[in-house]
Structures are given as structure tokens and as C-alpha cells.
């Protein structure tokens, strides 16, 4: 469904990504893991259009979208919940969610999708009329995922949905992500919580210092001795 080919990218002249290639297959959950500063979020920005690569191609459903602006990619079916969620702080939960359906492809069915999101995260229905700055971290993450779902994505991108959440909330979020995957959604997930993420993934990439250094099925990655030591923090 999505392919990156030979991507170089960076910020203000400093190169951060080097020859990154990866693929997210239809109906599968792909995970990118790697330490802080490896460039995971930067890869996602190249995919959702917030950052233009200096070299390489982004293909979505066979079309070259490398030069398409971010909002057109959402319209095409790529929807992201970015790092730190980036909700609209002064708007209510429901206004945030409804804005998720801003894309024309999603607007017509906004009411039904909203109902679907509320069934997925019942707590959001109770909080519907609160400004999102008043929510807990876990609830904000639910709004972030919900808002991305409101766009009726073909590909859902989540950047560290577990970041800064209590362990119990993390499991809850991972459970929901797994449900989405079982519902047939194509997912691309970035996580520092590598162990938990790989356990529910179909395919994994390992990034380090701006490069993909390993790729494969999760069991194989989980078995790699040096990865275990480096950052899975499991014996």
C-alpha cells in the first residue's frame, strides 16, 4: 500500500534520514522501532507530507505522492496521529473529532464514524464537551487516535501512542490498536516500547541514526541478541 524508496531528509540543512526504504503492506501492521533520535518521527513526517524529502520517492497505492502537500494526502487516505498527539487544545473533544472528518472523503459519514469512535472509546463520549487540555494523557491519546480514525483512513499512522502514559493505560491503548488491526485496517506504528509493539505487529523495521538497520518478521527481530540488549530491556 505504501512504499518509501531511497529517502534522504533533514531539517534546515542537517540531514537526518539516509536512504530509508520501507513498505507498509495492505491489511498489515508495520512497526518501526529504534532509540531516541533515530529518525522514526521524521520518517512519518515524510509519509504524511509535513516534511519534503531531499531525495527518494513516496508511493501510496502505486501513485507517486512525494510532492503532494499534507492535506491532500489525508484526502487520499493517509491519516496520522502525530507525536505528542497535537490536539487542538482550546476545542472540545467532539470538535477535535469532527475536525478529523474534515477531508471530503470522510465528511459525509462523519456522524456514523463519530459513533464508531465513541463505541471504540466510550470514555470520550462522557468527555465530549470538555476542552482537550482538561483531559488525562490517556484520554488525550484516545482523542488523537479517534481524530485520525475520523478521516476514514486507508492507512493509519500512529507515532508513539504509548508515550508518557501509565502502564495500565498503555496496555489499554495497545489493545485498541490490536482491535483496529483485526478489523482489517492497515497500520504503521512507531514505538519506543519495542517489545510490546513487535508482539502485535506483522512486520518490523529497526532504525538507528537515520538508517534502517534491520527488518523482518517480529519474532526474528525479538530474537536478535543485540537488539534485546540495546533497547528492549528484556533479559
Amino acid at each position: 500500500m505504501l512504499q518509501l524508496e531511497g529517502i534522504d531528509a533533514g531539517y534546515a540543512g542537517t540531514q537526518v534520514l539516509w536512504d530509508v526504504a520501507l513498505e507498509a503492506k495492505q491489511g498489515a501492521m508495520t512497526v518501526i522501532v529504534g532509540p531516541n533520535g533515530a529518525g522514526k518521527s521524521t520518517v512519518l513526517k515524510v509519509i504524511n507530507g509535513l516534511l519534503r524529502p531531499t531525495r527518494g520517492k513516496v508511493l501510496f497505492q502505486g501513485n507517486d505522492i512525494t510532492r503532494r502537500p499534507a492535506h491532500e494526502r489525508t484526502e487520499a487516505g493517509i491519516s496520522s496521529c502525530p507525536e505528542g498527539r497535537r490536539l487542538f487544545p482550546q476545542l472540545t473533544v467532539e470538535a477535535n473529532l469532527r475536525l478529523g472528518a474534515y477531508a471530503k472523503r470522510a465528511r459525509g459519514s462523519a456522524d456514523e464514524t463519530l459513533e464508531y469512535v465513541y463505541r471504540l472509546f466510550p470514555r470520550l463520549r462522557e468527555r465530549a464537551h470538555l476542552k482537550t487540555i482538561r483531559l488525562s494523557g490517556g484520554e488525550q491519546q484516545m482523542v488523537g487516535i479517534g481524530r485520525a480514525l475520523m478521516a476514514k483512513p486507508l492507512l493509519l499512522i500512529l507515532d508513539e501512542p504509548s508515550l508518557g502514559l501509565a502502564p495500565k493505560t498503555v496496555s489499554e491503548i495497545f489493545q485498541k490498536v490490536r482491535e483496529l488491526r483485526e478489523g482489517g485496517l492497515t497500520l504503521l506504528l512507531v514505538e519506543q516500547n519495542a517489545y510490546q509493539a513487535l508482539r502485535i505487529a506483522d512486520f518490523g523495521y529497526v532504525m538507528q541514526e537515520g538508517r534502517i538497520v534491520n527488518a523482518g518478521p517480529p519474532d526474528r527481530l525479538l530474537d536478535l541478541e543485540d537488539l534485546r540488549k540495546a533497547y528492549f530491556a528484556i533479559p
Binding site: 504524511n48 489525508t74 475536525l99 474534515y102 477531508a103
Partner: peptide, 8 residues
């Protein structure tokens, strides 16, 4: 950026 990501 968040606005762009929802398609604005």
C-alpha cells in the same frame, strides 16, 4: 501541522 494532518 495538526490542521494539515486532518486535511485542512
Amino acid at each position: 501541522p495538526a490542521a494539515q494532518l486532518v486535511g485542512i
